[in-house]
Amino acid sequence: MARPRLGVVKFASCDGCQLTLLDLEDQLLGIAEQVEIVEFAEATSARSAGPYELLLVEGSVSTPEQAEAIVELRRQAAKLVTIGACATTGGIQALRVFADHDAWRASIYPHPEWIESLATATPIADHVPVDAELRGCPIDPGQLLEFLTATLLGRRPRLPDEAVCLACKRAGSVCVVVAHGEPCLGPVTRTGCGAICPAFGRGCYACFGPRETANVPGLRRSLVVLGNAPADVDERFAGFTALAPPFARAAAAGLAAAAATGGDDARR
């Protein structure tokens, strides 16, 4: 039986999610036995324009060229799966939608007229239908492996949409909200990372994006009652998944408050 053809492509992103696949060192040979990797610029000079049985897409759409390219890739892919915070929510670069794009571009590049970028950085699903999402910045190697294994076997991959809190409690970590008053976004964030940040005493900053039934207003109220400044709580949403609909309002409020007080650096 012919092995399914796997492609890995990227848009606006840091390549970290692709590296997660490369970092599966112990399993990489096994994966290569089960699938034929025909396109993966990080790993091989062999190239293919498709078709693909499975296409992993990293990054968000932030240039006009990318907006065209993803449409063609979708045509070539039987199953298109987005990987990482950029591809699934827009990523950190999506913060531009809360700012003046032209002013930013002019302040960074000596010749802004040479830069062709969109005023937005949007998730792949805003452009084409997506069959599955692997969340996170970067994605979790265990989830990637589970996704590939389940897909090869034909069963539903286990990608739970519950809160980070469940993994945190199963791991036996102490809740940083209750024991330390840390602003932690775990209760509204999708699990999958293994609750790494709380295990090291840090609050979750939602790099996996919103879980199902994310009660953002409820969490904002609670974190403020526990002693956090409202602007600090809101600013926490203005990170890797700020553009995700349940978070966008809080993120915008947090950025506006930060701008009003002279920006993040000035306040610290």
């Binding site: 469940l166 009660n215 409820g218 609670s222």
Partner: peptide, 13 residues
């Protein structure tokens, strides 16, 4: 339900 975060912490502790 407006206050509850359905985070499951109550059930896990």
């Amino acid at each position: 339900a407006e206050r509850c975060l359905t985070c499951a912490n109550c059930t896990l502790v």
